[in-house]
């Protein structure tokens, strides 16, 4: 519980809380990306450079941008007049409690419930790569296949239907 951890945790919590409470959708996206950066910083503080930077690359660089892009493409000039969140308050709270319960159960009953104070392994990037290529090669390939299918599907969706007129 160092000062830097408290600071980063505060940034993360404030960011995600703001993402839920702010009225303006774009502000929500920006706050969410702040929370994600905070999370990445927490990973870095734990010595997991690969995970931390991937977090920034994927979530801030791709997911947040994608959300922002969707808002830009679909929303009218004034994105403030949205009050859809209010009608889902009860079900949202229920889902949140359930998710929290599942995560808490997984954390408590998991193997790493007891704090393990080992030094961060050196060359963690290489270890992550080796683990992905040896032990977890099947899940990796399955995910790759899934993503490729998604990519092709997106391409087909976006394809020009009137190819003859081109």
């Amino acid at each position: 519980m160092t000062i830097s951890f408290l600071l980063l945790a505060a940034i993360t919590i404030i960011g995600t809380a703001a993402a839920m409470t702010l009225k303006n959708l774009v502000h929500c996206v920006l706050a969410l990306s702040l929370g994600l950066v905070g999370l990445a910083a927490l990973y870095l503080q734990l010595g997991a450079q690969f995970v931390g930077f991937t977090q920034i690359l994927v979530y801030v660089g791709a997911v947040a941008i994608l959300a922002a892009f969707a808002i830009m493409m679909t929303r009218s000039a004034d994105p403030t007049a949205s009050n859809a969140a209010a009608s889902f308050r009860a079900s949202g709270a229920l889902i949140a409690v359930l998710v929290f319960a599942v995560l808490a159960w997984a954390t408590i009953s998991g193997t790493s419930a007891q704090p393990i104070f080992t030094a961060a392994p050196e060359g963690s990037v290489g270890q992550v790569g080796a683990a992905l290529m040896h032990r977890f090669v099947l899940p990796l390939e399955v995910i790759g296949l899934l993503l490729t299918a998604a990519l092709i599907g997106a391409g087909i969706l976006a394809m020009d239907e009137h190819r003859g007129t081109r």
Partner: peptide, 21 residues
């Protein structure tokens, strides 16, 4: 950094967010 190249691309992607902002 151990993951210096990754750091470069990660931070580079933050530029996009500021462009959007």
């Amino acid at each position: 950094l151990n993951a210096g190249v990754l750091f470069f691309f990660a931070i580079g992607s933050m530029v996009e967010l500021s462009v959007f902002m």
